[in-house]
Design a protein around this nucleic acid. Structure first.
Length: 419
RNA sequence: GCCACGGUAGUGUAGCCUGGUGAGCACAAGGGACUGUGGAUCCCUUAGCCCGAGUUCAAAUCUCGGCCGUGGCCCCA
């Protein structure tokens, strides 16, 4: 009888786990360096929390279930809703702005493929309580800093759903239709979006919309956009806001970005600036980060509060930065014969209490085999405990160079620490 | 939910088209030869046809279904 892993899940063996922890720590350290504080929420939430934010259609992409007393629950598909729920429950009267970050597994019932799993990890932040250009820019700059520090080659696209929505509103398109059209734009279905607009009697906006979503470039394309939006005051106002964010981004040193008004992010709770980061080398699942400014607290029964945030797809990030692990010091203590076992155990214990991690040879192998075994498991330093112990010494062997020297037991921790 | 390709010891593979000999090889793992330097060499051992049904005297091999994997669509991170 043997069992397979559930589809779309992974086991992480020691080597990969080390890489994951390393990356997690690097990313979270950068979050903290911007003043963000870590939070955690439950792995599952009430199903309604998720559907309140994303609509009933999302249910088929969720792991949802009834518990033993009939409550409908769902494994979280992302963190924004849970974190905002937590904010509404417990943090509404905390001093603003609130800077929160999270890291943890999320679950979606989707077809697995490269860079897409049913259990995957997200790392992200929410900045709650400020909608100033500098606050929005900070969030984006934070994402940019992470990508830059990881030395991956990426593209940052910045847009504004506010501009698009106000443009549509300007031509009499209602809220609900706006959402549907934005979804089509996000999926690149411009023709469908145009058909729908014509049906709604807003056919005259299609040319403007098309030109607008095809604009690409630096901050200078905002001028072209302004031309296109002439006569639509609300949209121009949104465009001006985007301009302010872009200006602030310059102060943060974020210059390698492209304005892309075609980013709609499909989701209806975004209000203003939106952004996405891509790592082209990842292929189909190249989006490593998505975020923007939104207003969600009121959906969960709180007072509206302007918020900006983003989430990294941690697994994709890991794929993107093919970092090779730093050489790790790994120590093994080998007794030369059973009669030295007791002493070897003692020395291993002494090393551990002095902060040097080490493992003990427990297979009673002959020296040759023991060395071969140590090598096979990636040990970098071996401590041989033999008759030199009568002079209070052990033999320290560097497994990479093959060099050996006798070292006093009491100076062993120090010598190994600097190795 | 849809499409393409795939699944043989722990890993990588041969065999499949053309059904029929104890399913072969390499590496890994465990033991030994061999008493502190043999990270070697030699020998031994462990361990496999994804699951189920069908066709057949006979299935790793052919057919169907399922499961899982890889990549793509969709969606997203």
């Amino acid at each position: 009888m043997s069992f397979q892993r559930p589809r779309g899940t992974r086991d992480f063996l020691p080597e990969e786990m080390r890489l994951r922890r390393e990356l997690e720590q690097r990313v979270c350290a950068i979050f903290r360096s911007f003043g963000y504080l870590e939070v955690a929420t439950p792995t599952f939430e009430h199903l309604e929390l998720i559907t309140a934010k994303s609509g009933e259609e999302i249910v088929e992409r969720l792991y949802s279930f009834q518990d033993k007393s009939g409550r409908w629950l769902a494994l979280r598909p992302e963190f924004t809703a849970p974190v905002m729920r937590m904010y509404v429950n417990s943090l509404q009267s905390a001093p603003k702005p609130l800077r929160l970050y999270y890291f943890g597994p999320c679950f979606r019932y989707e077809r697995p493929q490269s860079g897409r799993y049913r259990e995957f990890w997200q790392a992200g932040v929410e900045l709650i309580g400020s909608a100033t250009p500098e606050a929005q820019a900070e969030v984006l700059a934070l994402a940019d800093t992470v990508l830059r520090e990881l030395e991956v080659s990426y593209e940052l696209h910045v847009g504004s759903v506010g501009v698009l929505r106000k443009l549509l509103a300007c031509h009499g398109v209602g809220e609900e239709e706006q959402v549907r059209i934005m979804g089509m734009i996000d999926r690149g279905e411009m023709l469908r979006a145009e058909d729908m607009l014509k049906e709604l009697g807003a056919g005259e906006v299609t040319a403007t919309l098309r030109s607008l979503t095809e604009l690409r470039g630096g901050a200078e394309v905002l001028e072209e956009a302004a031309e296109l939006l002439r006569g639509c005051g609300d949209a121009l106002k949104e465009l001006h806001r985007l301009g302010e964010v872009l200006e602030a981004l310059e102060w943060y040193g974020v210059r390698e970005l492209r304005v892309n008004l075609g980013i709609a992010r499909g989701l209806d709770y975004y209000t203003g600036m939106v952004f996405e980061a891509y790592v082209p080398s990842l292929g189909a699942e190249k989006q490593v980060c998505g975020g923007g400014s939104y207003s969600l607290a009121e959906v969960f029964g709180g007072k509206p509060v302007p918020t900006s945030g983003f989430a990294f797809g941690f697994d994709r990030l890991l794929l993107a930065c093919s970092q090779k692990p730093a050489q790790e010091r790994r120590v093994m203590v080998i007794p030369l014969g059973v009669e030295m076992l007791k002493e070897a155990v003692g020395i291993a214990g002494m090393l551990r209490s002095r902060g040097v991690s080490c493992e003990l040879e427990v297979m009673r192998r002959r020296l040759g085999k023991a060395l071969a075994g140590a090598d096979a498991r990636g040990v970098s330093h071996v401590v041989l405990v033999g008759e030199e112990l009568r002079q209070g010494k052990v033999v320290l062997r560097d497994m990479h160079t093959g060099e050996q020297r006798e070292v006093k037991v009491e100076s062993l921790p120090e010598v190994l620490s600097s190795a």
